Amino acid sequence: MVNKRTVIGLLLCMVLALAGCRENTAPAKTAKEESQSKMNVVISETAADTGSETETAAGPKIENLDGLDAGTVISPEDIEGGELDNYFVSYTIDDDLFKRIYGLSYKEDCTIPREELRYLKVLHYGYDRQIYVGELMVNAELAGDFLEIFRALYENQYEIEKMLLVDDFGADDNWSIENNNTSAFNYRVSTLDGVTLSNHAFGRAIDINPLHNPYVTYYDWGMDTYFDESIPYMNREDSSLKHMINHEDLCCRLFIEHGFTWGGDWENPKDYQHFEKIE
Rank of each mutant, 00 (worst) to 15 (best):
I43G: 00
V189L: 06
P60R: 12
Y233M: 01
F146E: 02
G194V: 03
N246C: 08
K121N: 07
R236T: 02
K99Y: 12
R204H: 04
E45K: 11
F150S: 02
K162I: 06
T46Q: 12
I74E: 09
T56K: 14
F98Y: 12
V73L: 14
R151D: 06
N186T: 05
M244Y: 11
H200F: 03
G9Y: 09
S75H: 09
F146I: 01
H200R: 02
Y127K: 07
S240Y: 04
N209S: 09
D145I: 03
A26K: 09
N246E: 04
V73P: 00
R22G: 11
R22W: 13
T72W: 03
L241D: 00
G103W: 03
I160L: 15
I74L: 13
E141A: 15
Y91M: 03
Y127R: 06
P214A: 11
G144Y: 10
F150A: 05
F169A: 04
G71P: 00
A31W: 03
G59K: 07
E155D: 10
I74Q: 08
N156D: 12
Y219F: 15
G51T: 05
A28Y: 08
Y106P: 00
T54L: 15
K4R: 09
T30C: 14
D249A: 04
G170N: 10
R253Y: 01
R114H: 12
S75W: 03
M234H: 08
G263I: 02
A57V: 07
L104Y: 12
C21F: 13
P27D: 13
N186A: 13
C252R: 02
N179Q: 13
E159Y: 11
R5I: 11
F275P: 00
E141G: 11
A31T: 03
H258Q: 10
E159M: 15
D94G: 10
F146Y: 15
L16H: 01
A31I: 07
E55Q: 09
T261Y: 12
V73W: 06
E141K: 12
L10V: 09
K4I: 11
P210Y: 07
S190T: 09
K107F: 11
N180A: 13
A184E: 08
D128I: 11
R118C: 14
F88P: 00
A152S: 11
L136W: 10
G170T: 04
S44G: 14
D96G: 07
V195E: 08
